[in-house]
């Protein structure tokens, strides 16, 4: 099923995708319960996720907390080891590449996180922070590193002199610019953006999103964008995957998804999204209950305990991945 999904997604584009995630599973063992009756449970953070990220394109993963979107990103960054499934970079599996290629991969894939301050050392100047990824490439000497850091700072709208400042001398929005400068300093191909604007003020958010968009237009970066705010996702992306409890529920071209959400979970997310205007009335799909625990995922379709349209079959059979439109797939028994 998942291979079919990956192939289907591949057909839509020409040539091998830059990044292909194929039936990715990431499980963790967690110990739960009282001291003497402690049990080891399997937490299925990512439970069969497939998607492609194409050159110069933004692929967004949207979902609520605990749906596995960040774990997916961490697996792509090679921070988490997949339990099964594969991640292919330009057609080659990340498990097969040797140390030297891994190094090249690590400088080709960079990341920007929600809170830039926690990833900076408060005692080191930001120049050091920005040039750290360049240390992977031993042919770049100290002077060139500094020049690159200055160039990167200017590209993100800061001054070259800021290279000698400390993290605390920047405001929240400027710090996120510094984090972006670090990400682009090694001329990467793919940047993973994990909730990059969630902690910023509304007026600053727009600045950072516009910056990311223009950098993409000028330099052709690909983004793997992780967010929970639907407006942000619509603004940033070409393709969107909707995740719930470790699995992709719907995958579609962005405008198609926002115009025609198919999966009940996506519809529920849209219903719950705060309106842009008081007169906006949304389609009314409300989920019951809370999210199930990732250590105890319901059988059949994992949404059936909350879904307002659940049928008997939903609690028994995991739905197949179906194409419901051009560049639009969903996994639901309704279709």
């Amino acid at each position: 099923m998942t291979t079919a999904q990956a192939t289907a997604v591949g057909v839509a584009t020409n040539g091998p995708p830059m990044l292909r995630v194929n039936d990715l599973h990431v499980f963790f063992n967690v110990r739960r319960g009282p001291l003497l009756r402690r049990k080891t449970l399997t937490l299925k953070a990512v439970d069969g996720v497939s998607f492609d990220v194409n050159e110069g394109e933004t692929f967004s993963i949207v979902g609520e907390s605990g749906c596995g979107k960040t774990t997916t990103a961490r697996a792509v960054l090679k921070v988490e080891t997949p339990t099964s499934g594969s991640i292919l970079w330009q057609g080659r599996s990340l498990e097969d590449i040797d140390e030297q290629e891994t190094r090249a991969y690590r400088s080709a894939v960079q990341a920007v996180f929600q809170d830039p301050y926690s990833s900076m050392n408060p005692r080191l100047r930001v120049g050091h922070f920005i040039t750290e990824p360049l240390l992977l490439n031993s042919s770049i000497d100290r002077r060139e590193r500094r020049e690159r850091a200055q160039a990167a700072l200017q590209q993100v709208g800061l001054r070259a002199e800021d290279v000698d400042n400390f993290p605390h001398e920047f405001s929240g929005g400027q710090r996120q610019r510094v984090a972006i400068a670090r990400a682009i300093a090694s001329s990467p191909r793919l940047i993973i953006l994990d909730e990059p604007v969630s902690s910023l003020d509304v007026s600053i958010r727009a600045q950072i999103m516009n910056l990311l968009k223009s950098l993409q237009e000028v330099q052709g970066f690909s983004y793997l964008f992780i967010a929970h705010h639907l407006g942000t996702v619509r603004y940033m992306s070409q393709m969107v995957g909707v995740m719930y409890l470790g699995r992709m529920m719907e995958l579609s071209e962005s405008e198609e998804l926002f115009g025609n959400p198919m999966h009940p979970y996506t519809q529920a997310l849209f219903t719950a999204a705060l309106p842009d205007h008081p007169d906006i009335e949304r389609k009314d799909v409300m989920l019951r209950n809370d999210v199930a625990a990732a250590t105890d995922i319901p059988g059949g379709c994992r949404l059936h305990t909350r879904c307002p349209f659940a049928k008997p079959v939903c609690s028994e059979v995991e739905p197949e991945w179906k194409q419901v439109g051009p560049n639009h797939w969903t996994a639901c028994h309704l279709y």
């Binding site: 516009n210 407006g231 619509r234 940033m236």
Partner: peptide
């Protein structure tokens, strides 16, 4: 400056400064 869920926006109007 707020990206919209219901309409496609091509460019957000960012407010300069902090």
């Amino acid at each position: 400056a707020v990206p919209k869920v219901d309409i496609r926006v091509d460019r957000l109007h960012a407010i300069p400064g902090a």
